[in-house]
Write a protein that binds this DNA or RNA. Structure first.
Lengths: 204, 204
DNA sequence: ACAAATTTTTTACGCAATAAAAATTTTTGT
DNA sequence: ACAAAAATTTTTATTGCGTAAAAAATTTGT
């Protein structure tokens, strides 16, 4: 049988995630109740808690799923298109924002980011940060390409540079989702100023 | 009387904040109940909600108070001591971490940061971001000093550079509070790599 | 001092989160 | 195939956050 129990667990997890995905998209985070998710998934409310801990835990799991899809395509989407660091980061950031807004609205993302910080020690908090890290690594790989092409100093660590740039991007992403009125173009301009002022700070 | 009502409101606010400050420090965020704060302040639980909206709202107000104290001394603490950008930011970051850890523990700060994102539209969320911005402006002023001294390119906007550096610092600060084991020295080293790799990325 | 306005408190409710007991279902051994 | 054992879900109960509306108390203006 290779574990009927395990199989049923996987089934329930999937059903819960599917139900949650639909309800979150339809009603948002606040108006979606654990009980509603449970009912739609055909389990009890306590079972949802047993699997995902908190409502935000369920939400983070939903996001993790779509983030894995992003990871699968990010290399192709970047694909050596940019020939300099500024364009690379701006393109990267645009992909992230695009992906985020097509899947969930800003208020939901605020909950996701907040939960990833307040529950950073939980299973799903950690899993979220792991995915974030893998996203940063995609940026690192592109930077290595730029170094090969002589567009970035070979002396600097691509990893360090990639993580720093990712952090800059992430700070502006949080700003993006924190204001309903912030447009992608607004944030793009700000991020450009961030990176250009840093890159040119020591060009005396 | 020039407003007895206003006076009493201020009184209640102060009592609530004082009670909350003590309870949060003693018991942490989770084990501190709104009712306990209310009782210690001599008001009803609903009144606490009326003033601060949520438990995290109370917490953000407590933090805002200590942040104002930091703002009053940050210029002196920085006081033109550093003669280059890297040292300046590292010193700035150290002051922030020092201030943070002497007032509240990491778990509380996770709640504060999370609330500032998820409730960014609320009164106290906005006030928190305003204080953050003023902190960044202190950094901007120091950078202007470095530009005068010819240690930073005068062509770049001190404001843009200051905001970018502040964002880098803040990302590492969040990392600092997100892990109980992250030491101030660990984060210092990471932040140094962040800024150095960015500053040197185009030194071909 | 009294009527009006403001503010707090009381009261009630929905939901998240947690814990423990009860019920159900799968697994295991024979 | 069956009964005991083990694992898992459901039921039940409790605490606390957050919100809303009515009731009570207090200040204000005349």
């Amino acid at each position: 049988m290779a574990g009927l129990r395990e199989q049923q667990k996987e089934d329930r997890k999937k059903r819960i995630l599917k139900a949650a995905k639909g309800l979150f998209a339809e009603l948002g985070h606040e108006r979606t109740t654990i009980e509603a998710i449970a009912e739609a998934a055909g389990v009890s409310g306590v079972t949802v808690h047993n699997y995902y801990g908190t409502k935000s835990g369920v939400l983070m799991a939903v996001v993790a799923e779509s983030d894995r899809a992003l990871l699968d395509q990010i290399d192709d989407a970047l694909g050596g298109l940019c020939d300099n660091l500024v364009d690379l980061l701006l393109h990267f950031a645009e992909i992230i924002r695009q992906h985020a807004t097509t899947h969930l609205d800003k208020s939901i993302w605020r909950q996701v980011i907040a939960a990833s910080i307040s529950d950073s020690g939980s299973r799903f908090g950690k899993s979220y940060h792991t995915l974030d890290h893998q996203l940063a690594l995609a940026l690192v790989r592109e930077i290595e390409g730029l170094q090969q092409a002589g567009r970035v100093a070979k002396e600097v660590s691509a990893y360090d540079l990639g993580k720093a740039l990712f952090n800059l991007q992430n700070a502006r992403f949080v700003e993006f989702i924190s204001s309903e009125s912030a447009s992608s173009a607004d944030i793009d301009a700000k991020l450009r100023r961030d990176i250009e002022s840093l890159l040119n700070a020591l060009r005396l």
